[in-house]
Design a protein around this nucleic acid. Structure first.
Lengths: 129, 129
DNA sequence: GAACAATACATGCACCTGCATCTAATGCAA
DNA sequence: TTGCATTAGATGCAGGTGCATGTATTGTTC
């Protein structure tokens, strides 16, 4: 692993990240009134197909616990998820996706995929992790 | 280019970006009192080895023009670069690295490279663009 | 040359993020 | 049980970012 390769790879990551976040922010925002973080949280819940603890989400999305707490708060305000107390551990909070949240996700997912396909159209083969 | 590949690649980019930015922020900040954006701007100037227009920098670092303007302002406040008017086009601004800026960059570059090597240690082969 | 569009950069503003901290609940030890 | 460390999540705060806009300068068209 030499410096040049690491730096080049980093610049690649920076470029794709910037382009991707910018495009997602625009497309998801304009068309579905969702931010990238909001969509990502909805997407994780849908994938798991069950209610999740805040902490579980925290492991999956790359956000601090405080940022995630606020994303969930915004989603709840928009009635896309609901928070409900966890009986096992009353410190915990379950995040449960609403029907409206599921619908909005279903609506936004094709946009999300399309943006990413566009971003990585020039990427023949990359080794994810 | 199928959806799954695009999404996986995106998650890879998100993960590396989050990990890298976090580590750079910590290491460059604690050890050299520089943010990632500040270092990146210094790095670009050093690579080009000449004063650059704000606009030229804008093409290289993934920041909005306004954000870049502020990064340069912070760097100037820290005496690491100086802004000087461009005589050809008096709207323009040249950013010139100072001796102190060059020294700080030289000091921070090994930290930067080390962090990136660490981040991409598990990345056998990636095709940058 | 005058009027107007376009460009370069700076700045007000709103928003999002992370850090530090707070509160409440849990676990553990004496 | 009591006391204390730990954990889950919420929140105050400071800082960085992008968007929209402002100011100054340049280019263009008549």
């Amino acid at each position: 692993m030499d410096d040049e390769f690491a730096v080049d790879t980093w610049h690649y990551v920076l470029a794709k990240h910037a382009k991707g976040m910018c495009a997602l922010e625009r497309e998801l925002g304009d068309r579905h009134d969702l931010g990238p973080s909001e969509f990502e949280v909805l997407d994780r819940i849908v994938r798991h197909d069950r209610k999740l603890r805040i902490q579980e989400l925290c492991d999956e999305v790359h956000l601090s616990q405080s940022a995630l707490s606020r994303v969930v708060a915004r989603l709840e305000k928009a009635a896309l998820v609901s928070r409900c107390a966890c009986d096992d551990d009353r410190r915990g909070v379950f995040v449960h996706i609403t029907d409206e949240g599921r619908a909005r996700h279903a609506e936004a997912a094709p946009t999300h995929r399309a943006v990413l396909r566009e971003i990585f159209a020039d990427t023949p083969a990359l080794t994810p992790q």
